[in-house]
Design a protein around this nucleic acid. Structure first.
Length: 529
RNA sequence: GCUCGUGUGGUGUAGCCAGGUCCAUCAUAGUGGGUUUUCAUCCCGCCGACCCGGGUUCGAAUCCCGGCACGAGCACCA
């Protein structure tokens, strides 16, 4: 109908006819199979078989626009004021995946241009590249550190002043706020190039103190969006009082670029072709586009994602976490309760699960709230086949069993994979331990062993009825152990007994009827069910 | 307040740009069943959605207008 304008006015009559034919065709497919219908079509109307994938589900990430004939370059640009968190993983995964899919370049860029409000953390410069590599399974192609490139930003600032699209503004911040709101030109706006250059030198040489002057990009005070009106590009920081933590940088510079300027210039210098960022930076794109126009550059293709909240975690910021760790609320950046990559890694979350998780969420601009269960589900798929089964009995109750009990019992390590071998359980002292809750039943079946009747009497070896199957340990073949549950607020430790095993620290096991856990030095850390 | 953006089942997501088998995809959660000597894994079934109101059109999840809701920006933070 879309191609036959002449028939459209008769749509009311045609629709039922089409519906009838469709019903017929469907019936035919039902009886003789879809192939039959396809072969009929091939003979009668082959053109109908073409170009009908419009409604098929798109797999993976949306296509990047404007990629033809280009070397694709993307970047992930965190502030190195702490290790990476769950939210950062989105930036790493999405940018990294796009770069990978296009055989392009992923730049890891440290936007470390603030020494006062969000001071960088020296360790982060080493930690973050490793975290990126862990998450992606390969390192970033290039690392750029903004604080190494201040002279380049200065050059561009100077060009901005000399070409007249930037100026030194000496208005107090509040005054400028008023100008911005009322669309008035700031008195500094019309200064001559010479005066601006002079002001610039006074910023650099220490004549001006922080707050005395900034460099602004001349846009237009009449712009509809107030955020874009003559925005600030560089300012002075007191780096004597708040030195940059990197050796060699320290108090070397007083004038520092703001994000919008630094990021814009750096993207151009690095040949970034596509930017994927949070939609909170939409106005940043617009500000930067105005700057690009001044410089005569083309702004990269940009796409945005919305905010993500995890129901179980709520809002965590790097600076908040840093404070909580420093005052002892958490044991460190790798505290399993924290939504850091280190915490997740410690909890046994696989990088592949994180990748699949973020790719599945995609890059929509909606603000979303996701349950951790989705991430866990991805993780389970990755670990179940390799996770040996182990029996862990919480709050154990000892039961003496009697009857014709064998000396040893063999139980598969993994029910789906015989190749993983057997666990051998010694039964020589006739004592088993089961969970308090299971002990309330008069009879039960010990998993992989036998029925137990009242009074601990050994019953049928083969399954004889529908009594519940419980997990258990032999007193002799088990040791005391602790199961640790990382809950939101506190950490709970449960004492119990675990069957003997030789798995090294770090092994992910499945505690039968409990969940997946990772073996640590002194305990089992429960990951998820 | 001004500016920008987003609204598809419980939670996410595909479809929207180029309107028509869309009585709307897939996943996750929930639920029922099967396999299994785990409340695991795997398999099968069910459940459940186009924010509201107008308009354009033979036909609207899709285009237009209005409303409502939510979010973000308006930092000398990133």
């Amino acid at each position: 109908m879309s191609t036959r304008a002449d028939l459209r006015q008769h749509g009311g009559q045609i629709s039922p006819l089409v519906a009838q034919s469709v019903a017929k065709a469907n019936a035919l497919a039902q009886e003789n199979g879809l192939e039959h219908v396809e072969s009929l079509l091939k003979e009668e109307a082959p053109h109908l078989l073409e170009g009908r994938q419009k409604q098929e589900r798109r797999e993976g990430l949306p296509e990047l626009k404007d990629t033809e004939g280009k070397d694709i370059v993307l970047r992930f640009a965190p502030n190195p004021n702490g290790p990476l968190s769950f939210g950062h993983a989105r930036g790493v995964v999405i940018n990294g995946t796009y770069a990978h899919e296009h055989k392009g370049t992923l730049i890891l860029r440290f936007d470390d241009t603030d020494t006062t409000v969000k001071p960088p953390m020296l360790d982060a410069y080493d930690i973050i590249p490793k975290e990126v590599e862990w998450l992606l399974g390969r390192p970033a192609d290039r690392i750029v550190i903004a604080s190494d490139r201040i002279p380049l930003y200065y050059e561009h600032a100077e060009r901005m002043l000399s070409e007249g699209f930037g100026y030194i503004c000496q208005c107090p911040a509040e005054d400028f706020r008023t100008f911005r709101e009322t669309k008035q030109d700031c008195p500094c706006r019309d200064k001559s190039v010479d005066l601006n250059v002079e002001g610039w030198n006074m910023m650099l040489d220490g004549t001006y103190n922080p707050g005395d002057a900034v460099v602004r990009v001349k846009t237009d005070m009449e712009l509809k969006n107030p955020a874009l009106r003559d925005w600030p590009a560089l300012r002075i920081q007191d780096t004597e009082k708040n030195p940059h933590p990197r050796p060699g940088i320290g108090s070397k510079y007083r004038v520092w670029p703001l994000l919008d300027f630094q990021s814009a210039v750096e993207d151009q210098l690095q040949g970034v072709t596509h930017i994927v960022r949070g939609k909170d930076l939409m106005d940043s794109t617009r500000k930067q586009t105005l700057l690009y126009q001044h410089f005569g550059w083309n702004y990269p293709e940009t796409i945005y994602w919305g905010r993500v909240k995890v129901h179980e975690w709520g809002g965590f910021s790097t600076s908040k976490m840093r404070a909580s760790i420093e005052n002892g609320e958490y044991t460190g950046w790798d505290d399993p309760r924290l939504p850091t990559l280190q915490g997740l890694k410690l909890r046994g979350i696989q990088p592949e699960a994180l990748r699949n998780f973020w790719i599945e969420l995609g890059v929509t601009q909606k603000d979303i709230s996701v349950p951790l269960a989705t991430l866990f589900s991805h993780n389970t798929k990755g670990i179940d086949d390799d996770a040996p089964r182990l029996s862990f009995v919480r709050s154990p109750v000892t039961v003496s069993i009697h009857g014709d009990i064998p000396d040893d019992i063999k139980i598969p390590v993994h029910p789906n994979h015989d190749a993983m071998g057997k666990r051998i359980i010694s039964m020589r002292n006739n004592q088993i331990m089961i969970e308090q809750e299971d002990a309330n039943n008069p009879t039960y079946r010990l998993k992989e062993f036998a029925d137990i009747d009242e009074g601990g009497q050994l019953g049928s070896i083969s399954r004889s009825d529908k009594r519940s199957i419980i997990h258990w340990v032999s007193a002799e073949s088990s040791t005391e152990a602790i199961l640790t549950l990382p809950l939101q607020e506190n950490i709970e430790h449960i004492k119990g007994r675990v069957e003997h095993h030789n798995y090294p620290i770090g092994t992910i096991v499945q505690l039968e009827r409990i969940g997946y856990a990772i073996i640590r030095k002194d305990d089992f850390l429960l990951m998820h069910e």
